[in-house]
Design a protein around this nucleic acid. Structure first.
Length: 575
DNA sequence: GCCGTTTTCGGCCCGACTGTTTTCAGTCG
């Protein structure tokens, strides 16, 4: 993904927000919003496109194309600068609070001068919102809850953002003469769902050239500490990155140490102590004479301790050390194991890429089968109809004969408050595979939500429950269902639970994957792509699945297509 | 501001929910 597309998309997004905060034409704001999405999901690097080529991107006309050119020529866009001068950045930050949109943010700013999340919290605490039109006691309460939700992720980045930064820096440091090895470690290597700091590890005899290159990277906004062994910086987007340089002989120990987790390392060091060894970031040593045991790789370190190498995604002290001691580590599913994607969208509903573009990218990524699952008709904003769905199917069938990748026609159904879905059995029978997801009524009671999900599992045409908890990291809490009851129903009915790869969803979360696996549930690692760019998120879903200890037998999208078809057919036959 | 045409102007994704109103605005998906 070209970074330029993300930068431009972020600028247009900001302009759209500023337009709606200042009460400009709603349609204008919406167009900038749509253009931002289209550019973020566009396959070509916008920095290389001229005015005419830019205007071929959907929702980009003359005016927006000129603004993009202006940005690449001058480094800024005047129209945005003008609005920035009027509205403090903190006011826009307020709209990140769930339940607080542009209109209310503007009222808070104009009436009370509130221009930050902290300021809002203080004002609520002091009762200063009382009497403000549109802000009753319930609203104040909801805003406080929204702030809490937002704070839960404060200072942490989504995994795709952190990964992009890490890979850029690893690439740059690796190219410095004298750099013997370089990689990222820490929670990013463990594929945690959100990332606090990015940890980069390098090996070199002389650290100075690496440190020099590091602090000079264009992405670096501020140097926090600068030393011989460790340098910390903050990037232009506020992410802290630490670079540590170690001698090559200690690489294995250092990588093990800096990958963590802390809890995992405590367990590992206990094992070292019992063997008369000492493990630290500087290496593995004999306690008696303090001599360094050469441990150039992690495999060496674990082997010296009598353990099989433990994949980073398992290193959370959730039983992996005992499993390694017993030689019972799971054979985790890997990215090359994934054969298909069963949850994707096109521009027929809310995707930004065409069917052909999605298929071409999926093929290029090596997928063996691919399901198109645009939204079903009960999500009104998507304006799906029976006729549109059937036409898409016909179109897909015509394409199917052209390629080596097998094409499946599916849909993402909406699970309504009672657990029913959009179409009756006759219509559903025409799909090859169906995902069903909760998209509304998140606040039902746990009993209602549980019954709703169980009923969806019991539908013979529902093969996968999409993003089961519906959480959006930092924005929306997971729904509150009796998951053991849901997983039991999924296992009983032959319904897979999704492992959604989208970075702000990552749903099911790892703890729930572990729980579901105990019920012998099957899983579908999907991307839920809305553009060709999103197909690259698959690795995050695989990382999440690994954190849930899944093997390729657990994952239906790692199965050969005939086995998957049997999975679908068996459920239909059983009813 | 974009788009599509019954083109150069008028429509633009639509419905539900929530909390606040006393008939509706704001937010969300």
């Amino acid at each position: 993904m070209a970074r330029a597309n993300e930068v431009v998309a972020a600028l247009l997004d900001e302009y759209a927000d500023l337009l709606s905060i200042t009460g400009g034409e709603a349609f204008k704001a919406r167009v900038y919003d749509k253009a931002a999405r289209a550019i973020g999901g566009h396959h070509a690097d916008v920095a290389t496109l001229d005015l005419a080529a830019l205007q071929k991107i959907p929702n980009v006309g003359k005016s927006i194309a000129e603004k993009i050119i202006e940005y690449f020529d001058s480094g800024q866009i005047q129209a945005i600068e003008k609005l920035r001068a009027k509205i403090p950045p903190g006011v826009r930050a307020l709209t990140a609070i769930p339940g607080l949109g542009p209109k209310k943010a503007m009222i808070l700013y104009e009436e009370l001068g509130i221009s930050s999340v902290d300021g809002l919290e203080e004002a609520i605490g002091e009762g200063r919102l009382a009497g403000l039109r549109g802000f009753g006691p319930k609203t104040a309460e909801n805003l406080l809850h929204g702030i809490e939700l937002l704070r839960g992720e404060t200072g942490r980045s989504l995994i795709d953002t952190a990964m992009a930064v890490a890979e850029e820096i690893v690439g740059a440091i690796s190219a410095v003469p004298g750099c013997q090895r370089c990689t990222y470690a820490g929670s990013l290597r463990r594929m945690r769902e959100t990332i606090g700091d990015v940890d980069i590890l390098a090996a070199a005899r002389d650290s100075k050239p690496l440190m020099d290159a590091f602090v000079r990277l264009p992405i670096v906004a501020e140097v926090i500490v600068r030393g011989e062994k460790k340098t910390s910086v903050r990037t232009t987007r506020g992410l802290q990155v630490d670079l540590r340089v170690v001698p090559l002989e200690a690489w294995g120990a250092a990588l093990q140490y800096f990958t963590g987790s802390k809890e995992h390392n405590v367990r590992i060091r206990e094992i070292a102590v019992r063997k008369g060894l000492k493990l630290s970031e500087y290496g593995l040593f004999r306690v008696g004479d303090g001599s360094l045991i050469v441990s150039e790789t992690e495999e060496d370190v674990y082997a010296q301790l009598g353990l099989a190498w433990i994949p980073p995604t398992l290193r959370e002290d959730r039983g992996e050390v005992d499993a390694a001691l017993a030689g019972e580590l799971p054979d985790l599913v890997t990215l090359p194991d994934i054969r298909g994607d069963l949850h994707t969208h096109t521009n027929l509903t809310d995707g930004v890429s065409t069917l052909e573009e999605m298929l071409a990218t999926a093929r290029a990524r090596g997928l063996r089968y691919y399901a198109v699952t645009d939204h079903a008709k009960n999500l009104p904003m998507q304006r799906m109809t029976d006729a549109k769905m059937l036409k898409q199917r016909e179109h897909l069938r015509a394409l199917a004969s052209e390629g080596r990748m097998e094409l499946l026609h599916g849909t993402e159904l909406n699970i309504d408050p009672d657990g029913d879905v959009d179409w009756d059995a006759d219509f559903l029978a025409g799909f090859d595979v169906c995902v069903a997801s909760v998209h509304s009524h998140f606040n039902q009671s746990p009993e209602e939500l549980t019954r709703r999900l169980v009923r969806a599992c019991e539908n013979p045409y529902v093969n996968i429950i999409g993003h089961p908890t519906t959480r959006q990291i930092g924005r929306r809490a997971p729904i509150d269902a009796d998951w053991d009851a849901v997983f039991a129903a999924a296992a009983r009915t032959g319904t897979a639970m999704e492992v959604n790869s989208y970075p702000d969803r990552l749903d099911l979360p790892d703890e729930l994957i572990l729980r579901a696996k105990r019920h012998r549930v099957k899983f579908a690692i999907d991307t839920d792509s809305h553009s060709t760019v999103h197909l690259g998120h698959l690795r995050f879903g695989v990382g999440l699945a690994q954190r849930g200890w899944l093997t390729k037998d657990d994952v239906i999208t790692a199965w050969p297509l005939p086995k998957l078809r049997t999975f679908v057919a068996r459920k239909r036959r059983a009813h």
